[in-house]
Amino acid sequence: MASKPYARPLSPHLGIWRWGPHMLVSILHRATGVANSVGLGLLVWWLAAIAGGEDSYATFVDVFTVSGGGLNVIGYVVGIGLTLTVFQHMASGVRHLVLDIGAGYELRKGKMTAMATMVFSPLATIAFWAWLLVGKH
């Protein structure tokens, strides 16, 4: 019998567990999934702008591309941000797929693959946007 009759076990929470890269990647996977869902709203807007005709498409293009001869920061921030979330979510998804088949549960490998997703996503984003911007000139 327990020494305290009403003592209950503590549920694990962030105050008990020590932070590690695997925890961050798990949270990032959920956050990037939400961000990608919001990004789908932009896809719907783009498709609606195409269907709406020349004027509505011109409005969409003005918001997300170079307008007035200057650099439109909003379009690049949104585009680069969504690209980063797609690559992070994809890398984390591949990591989870590997974990689902039963591989990579060793502590060292788990931390290494978590760090690899966080290194891969910015590098892939930089490479993608470099290719995209260099291909225009």
Results as ranks from 00 to 15, higher is better:
Leu10His: 12
Thr125Ser: 02
Ala103Asn: 09
Lys109Asn: 11
Phe64Asn: 08
Gly135His: 10
Asp100Glu: 15
Gly69Ala: 07
Arg8Val: 15
Ile101Ala: 14
Ala124Thr: 02
Ile16Asp: 05
Lys136Gln: 13
Gly110Ser: 08
Pro21Phe: 06
Met112Gln: 14
Phe60Lys: 03
Phe64Gly: 01
Arg18Ser: 08
Gly93His: 02
Pro9Tyr: 07
Thr65Asn: 07
His89Phe: 06
Ala127Leu: 10
Trp19Cys: 10
Leu43Gln: 06
Ala130Lys: 14
Trp129Arg: 01
Leu99Asn: 01
Leu14Pro: 03
Ile80Trp: 03
Pro122Leu: 04
Lys109Tyr: 08
Pro21Asn: 10
Ile74Met: 11
Gly20Trp: 04
Met118Gln: 10
His96Asp: 12
Met1Phe: 11
Leu132Ser: 04
Leu133Gly: 03
Ala91His: 00
Ser67Val: 15
Leu97Tyr: 07
Met1Gln: 09
Leu123Asp: 09
Trp46Asp: 04
Arg95Gln: 15
Lys111Pro: 00
His89Asp: 01
Gly135Phe: 12
Leu14Asn: 07
Lys111Ala: 15
Val119Glu: 03
Gly75Tyr: 01
Glu106Ser: 14
Gly39Arg: 02
Ala2Val: 14
Arg18Trp: 07
Pro122Phe: 03
Asp62Trp: 06
Ala51Asn: 03
Ala51Met: 10
Thr125His: 02
Gly81Arg: 10
Thr117Arg: 01
Thr83Val: 08
Ala127Arg: 03
Tyr76Gly: 07
Ala7Gln: 12
Tyr105Ala: 13
Lys109Gln: 15
Ala114Leu: 07
Thr32Glu: 02
Lys109His: 15
Lys111His: 15
His89Glu: 03
His137Glu: 08
Leu99Ile: 08
Ile16Trp: 10
Leu28Met: 06
Arg18Met: 09
Ile27Tyr: 11
Tyr6Pro: 00
Val94Ser: 05
Asp55Thr: 08
Arg108Leu: 15
Thr65Ile: 04
Gly70Ser: 14
Val73His: 12
Val78Tyr: 04
Ala31Leu: 13
Ala58Ile: 02
Leu24Val: 12
Gly68Glu: 12
Thr59Gly: 09
Phe128Gln: 03
Asn72Asp: 05
Arg18Glu: 09
Leu71His: 11
Ala31Arg: 03
Asn72Lys: 04
Arg8Asp: 10
Leu84Pro: 01
Trp17Lys: 12
Glu106Thr: 15
Leu28Arg: 01
Arg18His: 11
Gln88Arg: 08
Leu84Thr: 00
Val34Lys: 06
Phe87His: 05
Met1Leu: 08
Met23Ser: 05
Gly53Trp: 08
Ile101Trp: 09
Met115Ile: 15
Asp100Tyr: 14
Gly52Ser: 02
Val38Ile: 10
Met115Tyr: 11
Val98Gln: 05
Thr117Asp: 03
Tyr76Arg: 11
Val78Glu: 02
Ala31Tyr: 09
